[in-house]
């Protein structure tokens, strides 16, 4: 019995010390990690969409509660008006989720642009969703009221040949972005007013 207690106490001390140390380290690195994540994962996509904005969309951002999830929104200011709001959504790809940044123009409810963040698609095949500019540009200026589908499903988006599954994943992500936008629009508009210069 005493041996049992000894084993228990040793493991307890090991875990407690380890947990304590990691908590300290985590709190020390947290802010840096969040910034790095922004810079490397979402940053390039957001900057690409918001090219020409007068602000840094990675800095001009706000968070909203959507059900249980907290979502980050990035604001693009053009000609002094904070009308563009971008956020990340996911659609199912060939392998795992495809992360897509969708930017919406709140003035006319049109898609301003999309960009890819993370995915595990096959290099040379599905990965082309990242590099194929023409594919990406097809989404621009589509209304969020419109149903967005691949041409094979009777829609308006031409899939990248040989990568229809990955293309479908992007379309699905944009579809869920529309839902999020519709759901949160009043709150987004309210928040955007704060960025008016």
């Amino acid at each position: 019995m005493r041996e049992m207690i000894r084993l228990f106490v040793v493991i307890l001390i090991f875990s407690a010390v380890s947990g304590g140390l990691l908590t300290i380290l985590h709190s020390k690195t947290e802010a840096r990690i969040e910034y790095q994540e922004l810079k490397f994962v979402k940053g390039p996509a957001i900057k690409q969409i918001m090219e020409g904005s007068s602000n840094d969309p990675l800095v001009t951002r706000f968070k909203l509660k959507d059900d249980t999830e907290e979502r980050s929104f990035y604001v693009g200011i053009f000609d002094g008006d904070p009308n563009i709001v971008a956020f990340e959504t996911f659609g199912k790809g060939y392998e795992g989720d495809i992360g897509v940044i969708v930017a919406v123009n709140v003035e006319n409810d049109e898609i301003f642009g999309i960009g890819m963040t993370t995915n595990k698609e096959t290099p040379g095949v599905g990965k082309r969703i990242e590099t194929d500019v023409d594919f990406r540009l097809q989404f621009n200026e589509l209304s969020i009221e419109e149903s967005i589908k691949l041409r094979n499903d009777g829609g308006q988006i031409d899939a990248i040949s040989g990568a229809s599954l990955s293309s479908g994943g992007v379309v699905a992500a944009v579809g869920s972005a529309k839902e999020i936008y519709k759901r949160l629009k009043p709150e987004i508009i309210e928040k955007l007013k704060g960025f008016k210069t």
């Binding site: 040793v10 493991i11 090991f14 875990s15 380890s18 140390l21 990691l22 380290l25 985590h26 690195t29 840096r32 990690i33 790095q36 994540e37 810079k39 490397f40």
Partner: peptide, 24 residues
């Protein structure tokens, strides 16, 4: 079990440091 706790701690340390300083 003790070895795994020690190893896992250092792996997490390495992971956090890499996230903070070599994210790419």
């Amino acid at each position: 079990a003790c070895f795994i706790v020690v190893i896992a701690t250092f792996v997490t340390v390495a992971e956090l440091l890499m996230q903070a300083f070599a994210y790419s």
